[in-house]
Computed example of a mutant assay.
Amino acid sequence: MSRIVYVNGDYLPEEDAKVSVFDRGFLFADGVYEVTSVLGGKLIDFDGHAKRLARSLGELDLAAPVTTDELLAIHRNLVERNDVTDGMVYLQVTRGAAPDRDFAFPDPDEVRSSLILFTQSKPGLADSPAAKTGIRVISIEDIRWGRRDIKTVQLLYPSMGKMMAKKAGKDDAWMVEDGMVTEGTSNNAYIVKDGVIVTRNLGTEILHGITRAAVLRFAREAQMRVEERPFTIEEAKDADEAFITSASAFVTPVVEIDGTPVGSGTPGPVAERLREIYLEESRATAI
């Protein structure tokens, strides 16, 4: 049975789904996206993703094609139609298809924003082997554009970073700008030193992660110390622990950076505890 996807108001088998060759998401990466995890058939932190989507749209002067309630209904419909127990729902909003290719934005009264969604089923998403073994990362120069706080579909360099890591026999890459770690290719980065959790403060340099916000809230509620500030790769190598967070990785330990073991070279207790708390709390509030 074909996967059912959503394209601009229609639910279609994936092989019948089409977007215009003039869509600005295709021609200019003129669009934004979100990924919401599904556990036990329910959506994790949908409200957070919806709010960040609205912010991204606003920063690019992009019109929301549907209301938040309608978007929730589409998510639930796709999860049900595709029988997704564990996995994710991807959504993308672009400025739509203008009659001609032009760098200038088209008149919003003449072009309608485009909306697509699809699901990916990932059985056992919460039981990822990487959570038990940890991941190994390399450091690379961060040469992305300056507005990383907007979740745009401009993902070529992060994809290149993933491939650099793969070529090096590692799992992912942490990006570095002006000597300081910004974030991972598709996740926020953290270190733990002397019981203190350190992660980069919010700004235009990093994505304002939805999982990041939840994990830091849970950490503070658990009386863990948190510092939001930049840190260097050398500081990370000297840390007791390191980990990443994202909507699909949740909390995943980092056990090696540029060939240097972090701490004991195994997942540490802070990352493991935060993952437990995050999954427990997220399942309890899923919709």
Rank of each mutant, 00 (worst) to 15 (best):
A249P: 02
L155W: 11
E183D: 10
D238Y: 08
S139F: 08
E110H: 08
D238E: 14
A131V: 02
P99A: 07
Q92R: 13
L43P: 04
S159E: 02
F26P: 01
T260G: 04
A54T: 15
V84I: 15
A249K: 15
S56E: 08
V137Y: 03
Y6A: 09
K18T: 13
N187T: 12
K18L: 05
R217H: 11
K193M: 08
R3N: 04
S113M: 03
R136G: 00
I150Y: 05
P158C: 01
P267D: 08
D83R: 15
E281K: 15
V215G: 10
V255C: 03
D142W: 08
P106S: 11
M88E: 11
R136K: 14
P129R: 09
S139I: 14
P99T: 03
Y33A: 06
D45F: 01
R275E: 06
A173P: 07
R136V: 00
G169F: 10
E281P: 01
V192M: 14
L91A: 02
F250T: 07
A189F: 10
G161I: 03
I74R: 06
A50F: 01
Y33L: 07
K193F: 11
G268T: 07
E14T: 05
G259W: 11
R200Y: 09
F231L: 08
D127L: 00
V215D: 11
P13S: 12
M1T: 08
G96P: 09
G124H: 11
E205F: 09
I197C: 08
R136Q: 05
M88I: 01
G179D: 14
D83Y: 05
M164N: 06
R220V: 00
D172Y: 02
G124P: 00
M224D: 05
S113T: 09
S121H: 13
L115K: 13
Y6G: 07
G124F: 13
V215I: 08
V93A: 10
F105R: 15
E234I: 00
L60E: 07
F22Y: 15
L27S: 07
V181Y: 03
V215Y: 05
R3K: 12
A131I: 01
D16E: 15
D127T: 01
I257V: 15
L117W: 09
F243N: 09
E256W: 04
L39I: 11
L43W: 04
I4R: 11
A214V: 10
R112Y: 03
M224Q: 10
P261R: 14
A213C: 00
R101D: 02
N82R: 07
